[in-house]
Design a protein around this nucleic acid. Structure first.
Length: 559
RNA sequence: UGGGACGUCGCCAAGUGGUAAGGCUCUGGGUUUUGAUCUCAGCAUUCGUAGGUUCGAUCCCUACCGUCCCAGCCA
């Protein structure tokens, strides 16, 4: 159709070559989170990549929990991760996989390595192990236990498995090269003793495999063809391959690394996000200010907008930081097209239209749900003698840059009449509490007959019949563009004003039974999504409506 | 002065031995009952730097500079 087809990223190129050469019959990928926290926007990239690749090339993608460290994991996280992946719009192949599901096989393979003389039980303590490992610039020394006999290793390893030793007393190591330039190749530890229950395997094990020992073999067992991970694992690739070459695995997976997603003003480190939750800086993992999938969902981000955003940032090996504006563009782009419009007054100011008769003042007007898309239908607006407009939309006097209501000037009420302000009523403190104005007859759908056209349009809501609600406005969580760069403590740049709660907001009557599937665009304000703190099942009088501002409208007005 | 990776517009990101796509941001104009949307236009003589090879280099070679990752019985 067009000649602007999207260029392939480097992983897609590899896959297309492998498919063309016949090296790969069917693409198999996997998304392998450790269930030790909630998924965040960074994970979304890995999810979109892994599931997207499988989808694009007619293959499959597994969801595999890399649960080799019971000390940090919990079922709470496996459930939330499943939910988030589904919500993002992806389906994993058959049942969910667990690295812990391969513990028996992994154990047998460890015995195999021992029998081949390639693995040994080491009695060095953690501190000694570190000393023996050497440093970045100096080679390490061989462990004094490196040359134990196969029989002794077999016996010790079996006793490790049976829970005979204390945590950390011994470890199983693979015999590679203590002088290797790559630290991960200096006799890495593949099993450690942890006398601790596991959320999936219960009390069965007293030893648990390391990531390095479990990951590649898990890939091989599942027939993963392209094991895609982030750049920090590039260092592990030689070891990943070493296991594949030295074990009788059923398939040969290959690892490819891409750079992780960074967005400025955000932090994507499970540890730091957990800190925000634990120290009550935010209200849970799904706080709308969190860059977690659940937080963004609650905020009103759509799965489509997140997928589009990820797609727009590309897949490379370059360490970069994506501008927040790119994320904002993706959500506005989606919501502009799909969000139904409504009017809601955040900071109400009463306007009395004195020339509307007091008796039977209520009028019913029809407004489109979307200005460019008729298929989205219409809604009924209630117009009255008394209405609310936003405090920001009225000034007693203003320069001509100001296109809103000013005394002696006209403004159009969105979807309704043109009005002209006559007088501002103030309280004893001099604060404006009401505006007296009048409607210009015949301006519903028409310009004023006298030719004096209003300069601007403002939104409004009937002061007699409306829906009371709470609106939560969110600002960035951090004031620093790079809250945790260069070892900075992200807590020091927390924005104390990241949440502003507005109560007594007045929404148009159609908001009485609000949609829960997509945000609304509150015209001239932004996009707002119903929060789970709402209670819409109760009687009208008791119902509680809470809206989160997903994102404001683009604002190019130079004030 | 150990090993590995990466450096193309403010931010992402294509590209290739033959004379720098696209998106975001930004700037200016038009339309508009959302200061939104839409729309038009502008925005890298230059590809980290310096040499070299070549008729010609962002792309090849060399050196240098810069950034990131690795010394968990974390993943």
């Amino acid at each position: 159709m067009t000649d602007t087809e999207k260029p392939l990223n480097f992983i897609e190129k590899v896959i297309e070559e492998d498919l063309a050469s016949g090296k790969t019959k069917q693409v198999q990928t996997r998304f392998p989170p450790e269930p030790n926290g909630y998924l965040h926007i960074g994970h979304a990239k890995s999810i979109c990549l892994n599931f997207g690749l499988a989808q694009k090339y007619g293959g499959q993608c597994n969801l595999r929990f890399d649960d080799t460290n019971p000390a940090k994991e919990d079922v709470e996280y496996v459930e939330s991760i499943k939910e988030d992946v589904k919500w993002l719009g992806f389906e994993w192949a058959d049942e969910v996989k667990f690295s812990s599901g391969y513990f028996d096989q992994l154990y047998d393979w460890a015995v195999h390595l021992i029998k081949e003389g390639k693995a040994y039980v080491c009695d060095l303590t953690q501190e000694e192990t570190r000393e023996y490992r050497g440093t970045l610039t100096e080679p390490g020394k061989n462990s004094p236990f490196r040359d134990r006999s196969v029989e002794e290793n077999l016996d010790l390893f079996e006793r490790m498995r049976d829970g005979e030793f204390e945590d950390g007393a011994r470890s199983l190591r693979v015999k590679i090269d203590m002088a290797h330039g790559n630290m991960h190749m200096r006799d890495p530890i593949i099993y450690r003793i942890k006398n601790m229950a596991h959320h999936q395997t219960g009390d069965k094990w007293h030893i648990y495999p390391s990531y390095d020992y479990a990951h590649g073999q898990g890939d091989a067992i599942e027939g993963v063809t392209h094991s895609v991970c982030t750049l920090e694992f590039a260092e592990h690739q030689p070891l990943y391959n070493w296991f594949i070459e030295n074990l009788p695995v059923p398939a040969i997976p290959r690892q490819y690394e891409f750079s992780r997603l960074n967005v400025n003003y955000l932090v994507t480190s499970k540890r730091k996000l957990k800190q925000l939750v634990d120290e009550n800086i935010v209200n849970g993992w799904d706080d709308p200010r969190m860059p977690t999938i659940s937080g963004m969902r609650r905020r009103g981000f759509t799965a489509q907008s997140i997928r589009n955003f990820i797609e727009s940032t590309g897949v490379t090996r370059v360490d970069g930081v994506v501008d927040m504006s790119q994320l904002e563009f993706s959500i506005r782009e989606d919501l502009n097209e799909n969000a139904p419009r409504a009017m809601c007054i955040l900071r109400p100011l009463k306007v009395t239209l004195w020339n509307v008769p007091e008796e039977n003042s209520t009028d019913y007007l029809v407004a489109p749900n979307h200005p460019q898309n008729e298929e989205m239908g219409t809604r009924t607006l209630i117009f009255d003698r008394e209405i609310y407009i936003d405090k920001e939309d009225f000034r007693e006097e203003a320069n001509k840059k100001y296109k809103r209501l000013v005394i002696g000037k006209r403004v159009r009420l969105r979807n309704a009449y043109v009005i002209e302000a006559d007088e501002a009523v103030k309280d004893k403190n001099g604060e404006i509490i009401e505006v007296k104005a009048r409607i210009i007859e015949g301006t519903l759908g028409n310009n004023p007959a006298d030719g004096i056209k209003p300069k601007g349009v403002i939104h409004w809501v009937s002061a007699i019949q409306n829906v009371d609600c709470e609106v939560r406005l969110y600002d960035r969580l951090y004031n620093d563009v790079a809250p945790d760069a260069g070892g900075k403590d992200h807590l020091e740049s927390i924005n104390p004003n990241s949440l502003e709660v507005l109560t007594g907001c007045k929404g148009e009557v159609s908001l009485q039974a609000p949609r829960t599937d997509i945000p609304y665009q509150f015209e001239r304000e932004g996009y707002y999504f119903l929060d789970k703190d709402s209670d819409v099942d109760k009687d009208l009088e008791e119902q509680k409506l809470v809206f989160n501002r997903t994102i404001g409208l683009r604002d190019t007005w130079e004030k």
